[in-house]
Every structure is written in structure tokens, then in C-alpha cells.
Design a protein around this nucleic acid. Sequence first.
DNA 1: TTAACAAATGAACAATTATTCATATGTTCA
DNA 2: TGAACATATGAATAATTGTTCATTTGTTAA
Lengths: 127, 127
Amino acid sequence: MKNDSMVCDEFCPHPQMIHAAQDIMPTQKEMSALADTFKIFGDVSRMKIICALLGGEMCVCDISLLLGMTQSAVSHQLRLLRNAFLVKTRREGKSVFYSLDDDHIYSIINQGLVHIRHTSKEENHHD
Amino acid sequence: MKNDSMVCDEFCPHPQMIHAAQDIMPTQKEMSALADTFKIFGDVSRMKIICALLGGEMCVCDISLLLGMTQSAVSHQLRLLRNAFLVKTRREGKSVFYSLDDDHIYSIINQGLVHIRHTSKEENHHD
DNA sequence: TTAACAAATGAACAATTATTCATATGTTCA
DNA sequence: TGAACATATGAATAATTGTTCATTTGTTAA
């Protein structure tokens, strides 16, 4: 949190680059919210749950069976997904059906897929 | 990892939904890679670094000064970003300039912004 | 109402991870 | 070469977090 002797002195930095960056950067609040959102995508169990819902709604026990996770673990993760507005619920009798909250969730996953396919190519070249 | 008494029995699940999901889901490897990638976006410090680079390349000490982080902390996070192919480097004398690796990084950030703006609206309604 | 079941939740534990501090590497210029 | 500086890295610590286990809530049907 502090910038003392270890950082370059006032002659090194490039003020115009710093100011340009400051102008373009989202607000602290937005960046914090962005990180919080992506953090939710950043766990394999949750990612599997999200992917399980790509085809449409499913109830908790379907998800448990499909992914081989306990009902409790799935439920805990679903709560985080719900708090982050990534999934929504619909109750039908004893079952609760979960589905992706909105279409741009698909866009985020798709962009992610574009990235990992792009990087796996890079890894093969490793240049 | 085990599905025993706590999960609904064989009469509850909806096989057609489970099979539909299985057909659509990415592979285990892809889902794992997706989670790993989003995990990198899922930290405020790294998100700030990424946002700092939205306007163009910057050297490590510029980033430290701009974000009020120590050079060491920035460097550690830059390594993770580099390993995930999110940033690339260019050396110029003593300085190392970092920039976003590719254009679809912007797309991911933009999709994230769309989401958080969408959710902040939802939070106001809280319906 | 009671039994049976699906889902949610709280506490505890284990594992992961971001930062700090100290030091090493690599580059430039005298 | 040696001094100064920018960046990288290893080890240790503190904080965060995913899962498990036990229990509770909420729903249906007898």
C-alpha cells in the first residue's frame, strides 16, 4: 500500500501514460464489482454449474447428480451465484429450478471460450 | 463427491434435462480452463492492473504509482496475468512495458461491465 | 398433523492465495 | 567494472474460501 524507496523515482514514470490510464479506467467501485463478478466465474464447481445451466433450467438435485457434487455443496455455490445475479430461481413443488439470469452470461462464457482456445494455440507455439 | 441419502432418489431427477445439459456442456478440461481464466480476473488488484492497461502499455513502476501498490505486489500479479496470457511484455532498457495480450480481453471486461450495470439496476428494484 | 423429501444454512476445517519483506536478476551509464 | 535503478522471485504470514457435516426450513401427500 505504500510507495517508498523500492519504486522508481519521479524521473522514471510516464505521466502522460498514467493520466491517459486514469481517464479511461472505470471507477474504483466498478472495478471492485467487476472483480467480484469474475471471482464467481473463477471456481470450477461454479463454472460447471453455470455450464450445466447453459441448456436450460435444472433443479438442485439434477445438478448434484450431473456434477457428482453433494446437494449441500451445490446449494452453497448456487447461493453465491444467486447473490451475484448470475442465476435466478423458480420453485415448483418441492423442487427449485435454477437458470441463468440473463443472456449476457452466455456472452461472458463465450468470450472466455474464445480466450482459452486462443491461449491453447499460443501454448503450442510457445514463442 | 458422493451422492447418497441426502440427494433426491431416482424418481425426482429429470433425465432429459440432465442429458440435454451433458450434450451442451463444454468438456471438463475447457470448464477447468474457463474457471482458471476467470479466477485471474477475479481479484481487485489484478482487475485494476488490467483496467490500467486498457488505454495502452505501461511499465511496472507506472502501474505501482497509479494504483498505490508496492512494486513487488504489482510484479507478482503481473506474473499471474502473464501466465494466463492476459498481458504481454516488451522490454525497453531498464523498464518492462506491459500491455493487454489481445483484443478479446476488452470484450470480456466490457461484458463484465454490462453485467454489473445490469445488476446494479436490479438491486435498486430488488423485486 | 405427520412423514417424507428437496433445498438452504451455520459452523468448522482444509486448502488456496494476496501481500510483505528480503534478496536476486538484468540493464544502463559512469 | 561498479553503482544505480527497474523488475522478478522465494519464503512466510494473514486472509479468504470451498467443502463437509449436522441441522433447519419449506413443500407435498397421506
